[in-house]
Amino acid sequence: MMALLACGTGFILDFLFGDPVWLYHPIRLIGALIAFLEKQFRRICKDQKNAQFVAGGLLGILVVLVSVVVPCLFLYAAGRVHPVLRFLLESFWCWQLLAAKGLKQESMKVYAEVKKGDLPGARKAVSMIVGRDTQCLDEAGVVKAAVETVAENTSDGVTAPLLFMMIGGAPLGFFYKAVNTMDSMIGYKDEKYLYLGRCAAKMDDVLNYIPARLSAFLMIAAAWVLKMDARGAWRIYLRDRRKHASPNSAQTEAVCAGALQIRLAGDAWYFGKLYKKDYIGDDIRPVEAEDIPRADRLMYGTAVLTFLLFGMVKLVFIL
């Protein structure tokens, strides 16, 4: 019950205030640990592929252990002082681990630049939230990139950590974010990370398999509640949910494309190289700037439904 209340408090704080940027974020500490261990393992393994593969597995185990054990120890110590102190600490961490308002704020920066007609400014704003090259994107490309990021991160940044925290409080939330951060830092299929980062990428795929699909179903429900094209969201989800290199990334992206009646994805440039990608959705209408706040509303609707549904499920098990 305490973990559920802390998760609910964190959810409300994120909804109202967004990420507390005035305090050093714990995920940055996890990122620093990943970078440190990568450096040490590379020094030991050199260019030996098999050794790098084993090192990647050890790196993953160490990062996860530290990311879970340290919060558990802090919460235990806080609880020994007073249960209220433990509750406040766990609520604060749950707040930090959610990214709904932060995602909205960053996407709306792109929206503001597009509405001003400042394409270079919009490209710069969207470059802060996507990994692709943005310098050659036209206005529609900028908007699509922002919408795709909101759609994909609805699961990675909001509903998935929310689900893990509702199951096991902040420590399980840190477990999820540790794996997610490893994937974003070293889970690439390029020459540098093909072996060292393979374990991190697979861990992220496994960990997100169920949350991504739950998020997609809840996003379809949110589209219906928000009077978007829920039928189109379901149709595009069934058709296009596998049109991505990752088994999870296209789940919510397909729903969003269908709900907004637009076409997303397609070819994209990364680090100066063109990657061929399938389209997701149908171009029933042209992409427009207003699709960014629409995607944000869909993200928030999905988050609220996730919290309400699984909060009630957990209450049933508790009571």
Rank of each mutant, 00 (worst) to 15 (best):
W93F: 10
K109C: 01
E90D: 12
A112V: 04
S127M: 02
A77I: 10
P71C: 12
P83K: 04
C45F: 13
S107W: 03
L33H: 07
V81D: 04
L103V: 02
R123P: 11
A51T: 15
I44V: 15
I30C: 08
G79E: 01
Y76H: 07
F74L: 15
C72A: 07
G60S: 15
V63I: 14
R86H: 05
H25D: 05
M108P: 05
C72G: 10
E106L: 02
Q52H: 13
W22Q: 11
A32E: 10
K124T: 04
G31E: 10
L75F: 02
I34E: 08
P20Y: 00
P26C: 08
W93K: 05
R80F: 02
V130T: 09
E113L: 03
L23N: 06
A100S: 05
A55K: 09
K104D: 01
V21T: 08
V64D: 11
P26F: 03
A55N: 11
K39N: 13
G79Q: 00
F92T: 11
L33G: 11
F92N: 10
F36A: 15
V63N: 13
L59D: 07
R80T: 06
K115D: 01
K116G: 01
R123Y: 03
V63F: 13
F87C: 02
H25K: 09
V66I: 13
I34V: 15
L89T: 02
L65F: 15
F53L: 14
L23C: 09
R43A: 08
K39P: 11
E106G: 02
A51P: 12
Q40I: 14
G117V: 04
Q48A: 14
A51W: 15
G57T: 08
H82R: 08
Q52Y: 13
R43E: 09
P120Q: 00
C94L: 08
W95T: 04
F53K: 15
W95A: 05
W22F: 13
L65S: 14
P83I: 06
H25T: 06
R123F: 06
F36N: 14
Y76L: 11
R42K: 12
M128P: 02
G121P: 01
L89V: 06
R28G: 06
L23E: 05
V54N: 11
L65E: 10
C94K: 03
E90M: 14
V70L: 15
P120L: 01
R132Y: 02
R42C: 06
D19C: 08
K116E: 02
L33S: 10
R28L: 10
G102C: 04
Q48C: 13
V21R: 12
L85C: 07
R123K: 10
L65Q: 11
D19R: 09
L37Y: 12
